[in-house]
Write a protein that binds this DNA or RNA. Structure first.
Lengths: 201, 201
DNA sequence: ATGTTTTTAATGCGATTGCATGATAACGAC
DNA sequence: GTCGTTATCATGCAATCGCATTAAAAACAT
């Protein structure tokens, strides 16, 4: 057997190059040559792992979801004895562009959201990914309600989507500098204060 | 004197063609040829009114803001004896992709938001435009508070941005079909119910 | 009607694109 | 070592891009 290479791993590395190009030069500037240069390989190598540009971008989008999920799990793992509120706040902070990694992911995500309006394949991937996150978020809120951590009159099935979409809506303004990351987190915390009972002493 | 044409009017018409191309073929597919064909003119005509593609897109972005504002004013004018809540809800509904016009505007806006992450000129235009809308929204909420239409404990300076960014966050999911326009409006109404006192009989 | 200027159209050009092809280098089974 | 397979690379090609150039058409002052 010939030289053996982990194809999936290679594709992930190339996807990272795609992210770098998108976040620094824009989605429309993504070319096989740029990606190859960014990854430090030849264009032929990119073609070897991705038969078409479309497949490359589609893989990159799915890899992006995995990357965000990994960062989320890492953030959660860093918490010690987290409350439901801590978990929800951590998940929110991960989605906001508060650090370079988050900013890169936000740039890439918004680019694919834009492309999804005319590319059904992207739309399906995004629906699936964000639908999953939303489901988890609702489950988290319901668990918080079951544990009695929510204030009276707070409906998990309403507030979970509300907080989630509020977070999504903050991403764009933070990216273009209309809102600072701190302002965004302040707004999120204000919402959490409204939904959760004060911590018992 | 020679043939006289309203340049601004002409640029607006071409901008509409730009919108059509963006919303049907995507931002990256925008070329001078496509825009010309969509507008039913030759490529030379497009070049005559827009020396460069960059200027064309920049003008289109500023025209988009005017178009949204016009649609907002029309929606408000259609209301008879509107309350503050009616005004705020109308403004929200205009920004959501609930009809073809709204959807086209949302597609174009998200495309420019994506492009703005690597094109400071776009970012500045968007900051300016969305900052203005946000200011008006806050003013509306403050007026509602002054009139005693808000529930106790509702802070206009917190809830106005919250509702605004919630709306922004709903646009993407509605565009890709994760949320239906009706669901989005339901979520908005739930928030308004939370903020505003019930209508007095 | 004529001349002048704006508007519209048509075409060309260098650069870049995605993709196909063929050559080279590297690695594992024998 | 030899061979066969694979990974990597370099190059070529048709198509398309933004932009420049040039010519025809149209509309008003005279």
């Amino acid at each position: 057997m010939p030289k053996q290479v982990d194809h999936e791993q290679r594709r992930r590395v190339l996807s990272e190059a795609v992210f770098a190009v998108i976040s620094t030069q824009g989605f429309e500037a993504v070319s096989l040559r740029d990606v190859a240069e960014q990854a430090g390989v030849s264009m032929g190598t990119v073609q070897h792992y991705f038969p078409t540009k479309q497949q490359m971008l589609s893989f990159a989008l799915s890899h992006m979801r995995e990357r965000v999920m990994a960062r989320l799990q890492a953030a959660i793992a860093a918490l010690c004895e987290p409350t439901r509120r801590d978990l929800i706040r951590a998940a929110t902070a991960v989605m906001l562009p508060v650090d370079p990694a988050g900013r890169e992911e936000a740039c890439v995500n918004i680019a694919f959201f834009s492309a999804a309006t005319v590319t059904p394949a992207y739309a399906e991937q995004l629906r699936d990914g964000y639908g999953r996150v939303l489901t988890v978020s609702v489950a988290n809120f319901r668990e918080a309600a079951r544990l009695g951590e929510l204030r009276d009159g707070i409906d998990p099935d309403v507030e979970a989507p509300a907080l989630y979409f509020l977070t999504q809506g903050l991403i764009g303004p933070v990216l273009v500098g209309l809102y600072s990351p701190d302002q965004a987190l302040l707004l999120v915390d204000a919402q959490l204060d409204r939904m959760f009972r004060p911590a018992s002493p």
